[in-house]
Design a protein around this nucleic acid. Structure first.
Length: 114
DNA sequence: GTCATGACAAAGA
DNA sequence: TTCTTTGCCATGA
């Protein structure tokens, strides 16, 4: 168990993101709400930015905004990578937006049942 | 300690 | 409906 100081909200975000099953996506707000920071959805996106510096593989491509739009694609090494990974998992991307977003939506609060 | 920024979200025009 | 504004809070300068 990491120390309390090391369990900052970033790691909690990473834990949730890593639990996202393949072929599923979630929103920043959903993660934020699950962690009890519904009003700090921006911090989730901030955490994702830090995820690139982590050794752990964070499936950040499965996290999009509430519209299902790939707003974070610009932060990937290749802009096509995010779309590619999602399509590879069976999702349909059109114009940087996930089609049937609700259908593939993965709600941590519902799946993890805190 | 104050100010600016950020991969968002909700409300208003 | 789309575009703009406001709130939110953790980081870094």
């Amino acid at each position: 168990m990491p120390k309390k100081d090391e369990m900052n909200f970033f790691e909690q975000v990473f834990e949730v993101v890593k639990l996202i099953p393949p072929g599923k996506v979630t929103s920043y707000g959903a993660i934020a709400k699950y962690l009890g920071m519904a009003k700090s959805s921006r911090m989730v996106g901030w955490a994702m930015n830090q995820s690139h510096f982590l050794k752990d593989k964070i499936p950040a491509h499965r996290v999009v905004n509430r519209n299902g739009m790939l707003t974070g694609k610009a932060h990937f090494e290749n802009h096509e990578q995010m779309k590619f990974l999602l399509e590879k998992e069976g999702l349909l991307i059109k114009n940087d937006t996930i089609m049937n977003f609700e259908k593939h939506f993965w709600n941590p609060a519902d799946e993890l049942k805190l």
